[in-house]
């Protein structure tokens, strides 16, 4: 289980290779990659700035990966999240879950993303034709996280 909070881009293929290196017991690796979109609501987005809480962010991501590892039989869990200035098309976030079977890997990857949206201290600021604006939290993200409490 490991997490990284960084300004640099990441390579999904290299991340998967690092998880599976020297192992033959992993049957499934599920990854999710989040990208900067060029639209926020109805407005064009030309750039994004991601602020975070150094120290606290790493702890929050480690806790999310640990919770996923406690809930499913994972052989590896990995979260990479970027901060700083980003452009449309740039990669923002990677979650990866490895397990003997696909079911646990799919669910754990989704669980980590859903908790990351509401529990990791990141704040997005978008640049639009009307100026820069802080992105509002979405009720849909709270709902996506809450459904794991019921199941």
């Amino acid at each position: 289980m490991s997490v990284s909070v960084q300004t640099e881009d990441f390579d999904v293929g290299a991340e998967i290779a690092a998880l599976t290196q020297d192992r033959t017991d992993i049957g499934a690796v599920v990854t999710f990659t989040g990208l900067v979109r060029d639209m926020g609501g109805a407005q064009a987005v030309s750039a994004m700035e991601l602020e975070h809480w150094p120290g606290m962010t790493e702890q929050a991501l480690e806790q999310i990966a640990a919770e996923a590892s406690a809930r499913w039989p994972l052989q590896a869990a990995r979260i990479v999240h970027r901060y700083g200035p980003l452009l449309p098309g740039d990669q923002i976030v990677l979650v990866a879950a490895a397990s003997p079977h696909r079911g646990a890997a799919f669910e754990a990857a989704e669980y980590m993303m859903d908790f990351l949206k509401t529990r990791a201290p990141f704040w997005k600021k978008e640049t639009t034709p009307d100026g820069a604006r802080w992105v509002d939290a979405r009720d849909a993200d709270d709902a996506a996280q809450a459904r794991w409490d019921q199941g």
Binding site: H52, W53, V93, L116, K117, W123
Partner: peptide, 25 residues
């Protein structure tokens, strides 16, 4: 560094952080 609410006690506390709802991912 523990999420709480506005009614939380500050007795013995050394750090308070204020921020909007998180929007990572």
């Amino acid at each position: 560094q523990t999420m709480t609410d506005i009614s939380a006690s500050l007795v013995g506390a050394s750090e308070v952080a204020f921020f909007p709802p998180m929007t990572g991912g």
